[in-house]
Structure formats: C-alpha cells, structure tokens
Amino acid sequence: MLAIAANDGVVRARQVARTLAQQCRLSLVEQTKLVTAASELARNTLVYGGGGTMTASLVDERGRRGVRLVFADQGPGIPDVDLALTDGWTSGSGMGLGLSGSKRLVDDFVLESAPGRGTTVTITKWGR
C-alpha cells in the first residue's frame, strides 16, 4: 500500500502502476493507459480526497491475469457521482477529464463514494 500524501505520492503511484503493468506483460499502449489512469486517480485522491492510499496488486480471475489498483481516501466524498463522471465537469480548476478519462482507459472501473464517507476507486486492466 502506497501513501498519497503529497505530489511525490502521485509520481510513485505512476511508478508502481508501471512496474505491475510490466510484470503482467501488458502491451506498451495498455501500460501507458493504465499508468495515465493511475496518475489521474492518484491526483484526485491527493487534491480532492485530502490524501489517501493506493493499493496495487496482480490479480487472477477466470484464467485472466490483470493489474488492480485501488485508490482510497477519507475525504468529503462525491455528492453526485454521475455528474463527476461527466466529461468536462470539474468542481475546481481542472479539465474534468480525470474520472471519465480513466474510466475509458481501463477495463473495469468501480467508483464508490458518499458525502462524508470518502471515495474509493477500483480499476483493473486485464492482460491477454
């Protein structure tokens, strides 16, 4: 488990994601997509969640191997998840592409959040 408490946590999240993606033998394009999604979600954890963690693992399910990354924080949560997942919607000064874009970049994307209860985003990228 990796702490995301400052900017260097976002950099380390990218490095860990890259290492696992290589271990899983993802193609270069798939690696790049996973690392980019990790970067977006780690930054959200830091900026909006007030810091949190990334838990990274290789997973085996139904004969498939994949990389799973779980971003968790105890921050304010997301009041309207559908709105937050809309391309271009931001509550701050971002471009509103982090959540919606990451969702497109990975195979599985699960966002759990409730006001006052923090946010957890779980993404998985499967190898072939």
Partner: peptide, 11 residues
C-alpha cells in the same frame, strides 16, 4: 502510445 492514450483520455 502517449498520443493514443491522450485521445482516449479526451484531450
């Protein structure tokens, strides 16, 4: 790979 990813990200 960066260009492909950027487009899918929406940028």
């Amino acid at each position: 790979a960066v260009a492909i990813t950027l487009v899918e990200l929406g940028l």
